[in-house]
Each structure stands twice: as C-alpha cells, then as structure tokens.
C-alpha cells in the first residue's frame, strides 16, 4: 500500500466490507453454535455442584477441580494431597497419542512423499486408495482390527504357521494393540496434509541443491523438510488431537483395563459415577492442554516464517 494508492474507506470498499461481513455470517454462526456455546456450557457446568446420579445443581462449586487435583483418601475426609490418579490417566493418554503421532509420521511422510512424486494420473489413484478404508465406519474398522489381532486370529495363525512362535503372541488387550488401532484410525490425517505440502513443493529446488553438491540427506533435511513443515505440523495435530480423546481403540483393543481421558470423561456421563461437573472439568483441562499444544505450534510456525 504505497503512497499513490487511494485512501481506504471509499464507498466501494465499504460495500465490500459489509458484504464480506454478511458473507462471513454463516461461519460465525457455525463457530458460535458448535464451538463457543458448547465450550461455554462445559465451563459453566464444571463450576456447578454435582447432583447425585447425574445432573447438576445450580450452585457454584470448585468441587470438580478439587477432585481432579486433590486426593482426600478413600473416604474423602483426609487433608488434600496431590492426586496422581487423573494426572496419570492424562499422561497415559498423552503418551499414547504422542507415540501414535510419531508412528504415523514415520510411515506417513514416506507414503505422502511417494504419492506426491508419482505421475499426475496415478497420484489421484493413490490418494483414492488411501481413503478407501475410511468409507467404513471407525467402529467396524476397530472391531475388525480386534479380529485380526486376537490369539486365534489370522495374524497369530500366520506367525504360528511360519514357525516364528509356538504360542500365540498376546497382542490383543495390550498397549501395542491400542497403538496399532490409533495408528490405523488416523494415518490418513497424517498422509493427506503432508501430501498436499509435498505436491506444492518445487522439485527444481532439490535439483538445484544436488547441483550444489548437497547430499540426498542434506537436501531432505535442509530443503524439503522446511518447505513441507506446515503440512507435517498440520498432520501431527490432526493425529494427536483425536488420539488424545480416543476411546474406541483403548476400549475394544486395549480391553478397557485402564481409563484413558476419553473413557474417564465418558464414565462421568454414561457410567455409574454420574458426575457431570467432574466430566466437564476434565474436558476443560483437556481442552486447555490441546489449546496449549496448538499455541506452541502456532508460535513455532510464526518464528519459522519470520526467519525465512
């Protein structure tokens, strides 16, 4: 906007601005109804008094947060000590989700790179192939996974048939099964954004790097990765966040032996506990953690952009 341009605020640009505001209305409405309102409700509920067997009493209370952070013994009458129960449950979920993200990245990046370097025609076919399993409902895919992994399932039959093991490997009801389930559920969320970024990448840059005697590894690390980093970050967030709240894979593949964040929250509403404020408080804490992750990644992104 150099000196010669007309000052903003003319009739035309005003019309444009108001039209733009009107055109944005649907998105604002969607955000208000599906994001702001539910979060506000959750926040309010987390500070209300629990009603026995579900529901809330409209009285202010910090009881839900107290329960999260304070261990007052089995009978609830001891002085407050730090409560590790829920912190451990959160940590377990974060660790699981983080591992699933790393695993997805390790397999997702080469896959995306491979697809993006095919000819234009076959590329569409590969992307199509990646999405095919996702036409089937997540629940059914998770149950199928259970069938594959079980002691008498095809995987163990194969291993025994090949003579690699005598007794079936115990995979079902372990963390490994949960990992496989999460990884399988969310892999495309990693592949597709990275694919989009690699596809936009200008491969002549790699050629230029090679002309300047960069090794393949150096080209990948210093040219390709920085260029497709936004896609990688987007993919990681898209895998990490839903994995964090997942409860299908932990329940069906992990045997539901231990609470994850998702099943802990579910139990407060659908289970015997019927503790809505606590469920809301746990959700708020989860939301805060997720927002922190997003915030950190956003600042990271900005810093990289500034450096370039």
């Amino acid at each position: 906007m150099a000196g010669g341009a007309p000052a903003p605020g003319g009739v035309a640009s005003q019309t444009f601005a108001s039209a733009r505001n009107w055109l944005l209305m649907p998105s604002w409405a969607v955000l208000l109804v599906f994001v702001a309102a539910p979060v506000a409700m959750m926040l309010v509920y987390s500070f209300l008094t629990k009603e026995f067997r579900g529901g809330v009493i409209w009285e202010f209370s910090t009881g839900a947060y107290d329960q999260f952070f304070c261990n007052r013994g089995l009978f609830g009458d001891e002085p407050c000590q730090i409560e590790w129960t829920y912190i451990n449950i959160f940590w377990r979920s974060i660790w699981q989700a983080g591992l699933a993200t790393v695993l997805s990245l390790l397999i997702g990046f080469p896959t995306a790179y491979f697809i993006a370097t095919r000819s234009e025609k076959t590329r569409a076919l590969w992307v199509f192939a990646i999405t095919i399993p996702y036409w089937v409902n997540l629940l059914i895919r998770t149950v199928s996974m259970k069938f594959l992994l079980r002691d008498q399932g095809p995987l163990n039959d194969l291993l025994i048939g090949l003579g690699l093991t005598e007794d079936p490997l115990r995979i079902i009801n372990t963390n490994l099964a949960v990992q496989l389930g999460l990884y399988y559920s969310y892999l495309p969320f990693m592949v597709l954004p990275i694919y989009a970024a690699v596809e936009r990448y200008n491969f002549t840059l790699s050629e230029a790097a090679a002309d300047l005697y960069a090794t393949k590894w150096a080209t990948l690390r210093r040219i390709v990765l920085p260029a497709v980093k936004p896609g990688i970050v987007a993919g990681c967030i898209l895998v990490f966040v839903p994995s964090l709240g997942a409860f299908l894979a932990p329940d069906l593949l992990g045997g539901a032996r231990n609470f994850m964040i998702g099943s802990l929250i579910e139990e407060q509403f659908k289970g015997n506990a019927g503790n809505w404020p606590f469920g809301a408080a746990a959700s708020m804490i989860l939301l805060t953690l997720v927002l922190l992750v997003l915030l950190v990644s956003a600042t990271q992104q900005r810093r990289t952009k500034g450096a370039v």
């Binding site: 026995f52 009978f75 609830g76 129960t85 032996r257 231990n258 609470f259 015997n272």
Partner: peptide, 17 residues
C-alpha cells in the same frame, strides 16, 4: 445412599485408574 456410593465410585476409579 449418596455418601456410601461416593466411596464405591472411588473404589471403581481406583480399579480402573
């Protein structure tokens, strides 16, 4: 009753934590 149930809820959470 509510007070007794609270202890049983805690026992269940302990079991699944």
């Amino acid at each position: 009753d509510e007070a007794t149930q609270a202890v049983y809820d805690q026992i269940w959470t302990n079991l699944k934590k």
